[in-house]
Amino acid sequence: MSKKLAGYGLLCSIILLLTLLICVGTGPVSLPIGQIARILLRQIPILGQGISIDWSPSSEQIVLNVRLPRIVLGMLVGASLALAGAAFQGVLRNPLADPFTLGVSSGSSLGAAVLIFFGWQYSLIGALTLPAVAFFSGVITLWIVLWLAKEKGKIPTESLILSGVVMQSFLGAVVAFLTAMSKKTINEILYWTLGSLSLRGWSYTAILFPYVIVGLVVLWSYARRLNLLALGEREASHSGLDVERTKFIVLVVATLLTATAVSVSGVIGFVGLVVPHMIRMVTGPDYRLIVPLSAICGGIFMMWSDLAARMVLAPTEIPLGIITAFLGAPFFAYLLCRNKKQRMGVNS
């Protein structure tokens, strides 16, 4: 398994690095990849001293202060949502589960929208107020969705998705109401409902980075437990696994990742659905591979999506949530059809 992880991890890391360089170099002012690499290497202590400056100050400004903060933030947002999706799918044993379809993203965005509406973004614990409130509203939403979907102690796929859609629609209506009632903050609230990475500097990256690292470490440490859960809760319990404790920790971490991502980028759907499932199709069902590769590939997916949002209708920027919906909705429909065929095959 370690060789398989090293191989896939190296390949995905190379793609991640190339994607970052391409995205940084693409825009109204095109920059050569080699020049971008030298600008970035120049920032590394000791190593950077041996690189001569052969670029203009404006090029360095574009790379370090305009494009790179946005692209790195997108990479972290994608990693957060993909990790959360892998966690939800693993603990619920449902390939259709993700933060968006379960309504957690909408719940987190509602908490953020309420704070923005009343101007309370920094009223409690400074810059951490928004992520904290988004987290608690996301947790409450997840609890309601699971409670609505539960039937005789079990959570059927159809009921789970329906409950998520109901909550997503209701919470979306509440956010729309706040938007309609707002005058001064209407643009900020619309930002949460459509998703975007524009005008986001290094401070937002600093907020999200520790959550991603901690979330990755915790979920990766629970990968073996998620593999046991895939066998069924009864079998996992007979193997000595504390099922309820595992489910609680994984769901809380996944919700925290979703909430912090939403707090800096708004609602961006389907990343947590598409990325882990594509990895599962390539590498198999082992969560020791799915969890770390979801973090890397989630970043790749988000960077390309953000590049499309910036460039397809340039100079007009498409909201990022629209791009991911165009990509993710057909994939979601495919999964629904495939699950339907599988159920019909089992019943027959």
Score class of each variant (00 low, 15 high):
residue 150 K to A: 14
residue 287 Y to L: 02
residue 51 I to A: 03
residue 121 Q to A: 04
residue 119 G to M: 04
residue 251 L to E: 02
residue 304 W to Q: 06
residue 17 L to G: 13
residue 218 V to C: 08
residue 274 V to Q: 04
residue 311 M to C: 08
residue 9 G to I: 04
residue 190 L to W: 12
residue 194 L to T: 15
residue 13 S to D: 09
residue 34 G to S: 06
residue 8 Y to A: 06
residue 320 L to V: 07
residue 61 Q to C: 05
residue 311 M to T: 15
residue 152 K to C: 14
residue 277 H to R: 00
residue 285 P to E: 01
residue 16 L to P: 06
residue 38 R to S: 14
residue 80 S to M: 01
residue 106 S to Y: 11
residue 8 Y to T: 08
residue 74 G to V: 00
residue 72 V to G: 11
residue 212 V to S: 08
residue 125 I to M: 03
residue 17 L to V: 10
residue 259 A to Q: 00
residue 122 Y to K: 12
residue 50 G to C: 04
residue 294 S to C: 00
residue 338 R to N: 15
residue 304 W to G: 08
residue 60 E to V: 02
residue 236 A to D: 05
residue 267 V to C: 09
residue 290 I to L: 06
residue 245 R to D: 01
residue 115 L to T: 04
residue 261 A to S: 14
residue 129 T to F: 06
residue 177 F to W: 14
residue 48 G to K: 07
residue 21 L to I: 14
residue 134 A to M: 04
residue 334 Y to N: 13
residue 277 H to I: 01
residue 147 W to F: 05
residue 83 L to Y: 14
residue 221 S to E: 03
residue 213 I to F: 00
residue 166 V to E: 05
residue 59 S to E: 07
residue 246 T to K: 04
residue 187 N to C: 07
residue 232 G to N: 09
residue 343 R to Q: 15
residue 149 A to N: 04
residue 275 V to G: 09
residue 65 N to K: 08
residue 45 P to C: 06
residue 228 L to Q: 13
residue 46 I to K: 09
residue 96 L to K: 04
residue 111 G to Y: 02
residue 79 A to P: 03
residue 210 P to R: 10
residue 296 I to T: 12
residue 258 T to Q: 05
residue 203 S to N: 13
residue 155 I to S: 13
residue 112 A to S: 06
residue 115 L to D: 08
residue 13 S to K: 02
residue 243 V to K: 09
residue 341 K to S: 07
residue 324 T to P: 08
